[in-house]
């Protein structure tokens, strides 16, 4: 399996998008750390940008990569290799290189400007979000053979998780404002990995009250290590479920 990951890495490094992504994150982080007064403020701005761009870039890059590796996978499937291994190598290759780019692009400026433990949470969140959205991208790519359709599904998923979902949550909160909604909000948050990521970082920033409904409620209910653990656990589920189901579809599909 390591061998195949090696070749997936080669392929990704050659096409330079990951390099551009790293530079973009570096530029963004350096800019924000230089702009804001305290590192905490910079992390807050960074969080919002990261939660918008990291899922988008992960999902679009992973989907296009999957379709572009079709020939590569076809070549390997005729060799004595387990299909699941081919699939997992592709996944780990893409997710690890994107995570590496993220850690480099956001982590290095953080180290230089001396961020607190919150910075570490942001890094962890970014890595989790990357793994989740690469898994979602692979799910979108195994569902359909048509590249345009696959990228369409991937973009829709991003739209849903990054923009539409919060809108839906707000509508529900306003519509049922007369009822006690604490536990419902909690459940709704768990249904969106981007919100989960946001909460993990916010819980450590003490500005949750300013950051919308979902975040504020979470703070009051789960403002503890236990809450953070639960949130990361849920994110893990968000990565494993789409990955496992896409792996199943892939190993039962004609190539």
């Amino acid at each position: 399996m390591n061998k195949i990951i090696k070749y997936v890495f080669y392929d990704i490094i050659r096409n330079k998008i990951v390099l551009a992504y790293t530079l973009f994150l570096l530029l963004l982080s350096f800019g924000l750390f230089n702009l804001g007064g305290s590192p905490d403020k910079a992390i807050l701005s960074l969080l919002n940008l990261v939660l918008l761009t990291v899922p988008l870039i992960s999902i679009v890059f992973a989907t296009t990569h999957f379709y572009n590796s079709y020939e590569f996978m076809e070549l390997l499937v005729a060799q004595p290799i387990n299909r699941k291994k081919i699939f997992m190598s592709e996944y780990l290759g893409v997710a690890c290189s994107l995570s590496g780019a993220f850690i480099l692009g956001v982590g290095v400026p953080m180290l230089i400007f001396g961020a607190s433990i919150t910075g570490l949470y942001l890094l962890l969140t970014g890595v989790f979000i990357t793994f989740i959205f690469v898994a979602l991208a692979f799910l979108a790519s195994v569902i359909t053979r048509d590249k345009a359709k696959g990228i369409g599904i991937a973009l829709l998923l991003w739209f849903y998780f990054a923009l539409i979902y919060d809108g839906i949550v707000l509508i529900i909160l306003y519509a049922f404002a007369d009822y006690p909604l604490e536990s419902a909000t909690l459940a709704m948050t768990a249904l969106n990995p981007v919100d989960l990521g946001r909460i993990i970082v916010l819980l450590n920033l003490d500005v949750s009250a300013l950051m919308g409904y979902t975040g504020a409620l979470y703070k009051s209910i789960l403002g503890s290590l236990w809450g953070i653990g639960l949130a990361f656990g849920l994110m893990l589920v968000w990565a494993v479920v789409p990955l496992a189901s896409s792996g199943r579809i892939f190993s039962k599909r004609d190539l």
Binding site: R14, Y70, F72, L75, P80, I81
Partner: peptide, 19 residues
């Protein structure tokens, strides 16, 4: 999958990673 080490396959249209 292990049995495939005993098979050599030449496809009708060979498709390979382009770069």
């Amino acid at each position: 999958h292990a049995y495939r080490s005993q098979i050599g396959y030449m496809p009708q249209i060979g498709r390979y990673p382009e770069n």
